[in-house]
């Protein structure tokens, strides 16, 4: 008498199963909403980034301008002083020297005062710029891009870093066809899957899925930059 292997096997596997639902349910974390690229943030971020770049540049230009002015003023004063000295050539050498020395001292004092004021202004501006830059960076760090990647490859010796070919980038943040270096958010659930490694086979399976995926793949990227092959 032959017995159905399949039927009996299924029956056996379905019998005496543990009830794990309560245990699983208790351990489930609440789902956080998926962060999508926010176009509302794009404007302020761009503005902050521009500010971070432009403010130091403008300050630099300003400093150059002021420095030029100060130099002109000093040269003029010195010329005046020389003229003054020559016009008083008949007077005693001591008196001329004293006057010139007093005038030079006054001019130096004025120049120093100006320089210290300029320095103070520059310091404040630099601090502001640094603050703006830090703010921009922290905002940029939360930006996620929608990209379709092919075959992310772990960078040897660099945990959490991968290289990948961009197949499609909907937000225009990345160029299709370019290879990028990406850092997968260790705090993200998906990244956790790769980061903790599990077995190599699973990573391979994931890569395979990514390769076979014909649709658009939503990938969470904390930060990314173009990857130069020569580097």
């Amino acid at each position: 008498m032959s017995k159905s292997l399949e039927k009996e096997y299924r029956k056996m596997a379905s019998s005496d199963l543990p009830d794990l639902w309560n245990r699983i349910s208790d351990a489930l974390p609440e789902k956080k909403p998926v962060r999508r690229p926010s176009f509302k943030l794009a404007g302020p971020i761009a503005a902050a980034v521009c500010a971070a770049i432009l403010i130091p540049a403008l300050i630099g230009l300003g400093r150059k301008g002021n420095a030029g002015g100060a130099a002109y003023y000093t040269a003029e004063a010195i010329t005046d002083g020389q003229e003054y000295r020559s016009s008083k050539s008949a007077q005693s050498a001591a008196a001329v020297t004293e006057d010139a020395a007093m005038e030079e001292a006054a001019m130096e004092e004025a120049a120093m005062e100006e320089a210290s004021m300029e320095e103070a202004v520059t310091e404040t501006a630099v601090e502001d710029a640094a603050e703006a830059r830090a703010e921009a960076e922290s905002m940029a760090a939360t930006v996620y891009y929608d990209v379709h990647l092919d075959n992310p490859v772990p960078v040897e010796g660099e945990e959490n870093w991968y290289t990948a070919l961009v197949l499609e980038a909907r937000d225009g943040a990345l160029e299709a066809g370019s290879t990028i270096l990406l850092y997968l958010d260790p705090a993200g659930d998906g990244a956790e899957e790769i980061r903790t490694g599990l077995a190599e086979t699973e990573i391979k399976a994931s890569l395979q899925e990514i390769k076979e995926d014909t649709g658009s793949l939503y990938y969470q990227i904390l930060s990314c930059e173009k990857w130069e092959a020569d580097e």
């Binding site: 699983i24 659930d189 998906g190 899957e193 990514i210 076979e212 014909t214 793949l217």
Partner: peptide, 20 residues
Amino acid sequence: VTSEFFIRLWNTAERYRPGS
């Protein structure tokens, strides 16, 4: 391990790619 499997499936649901 079975419990952990289902918890993990929950945690990584966003990464599931249909089709294979």
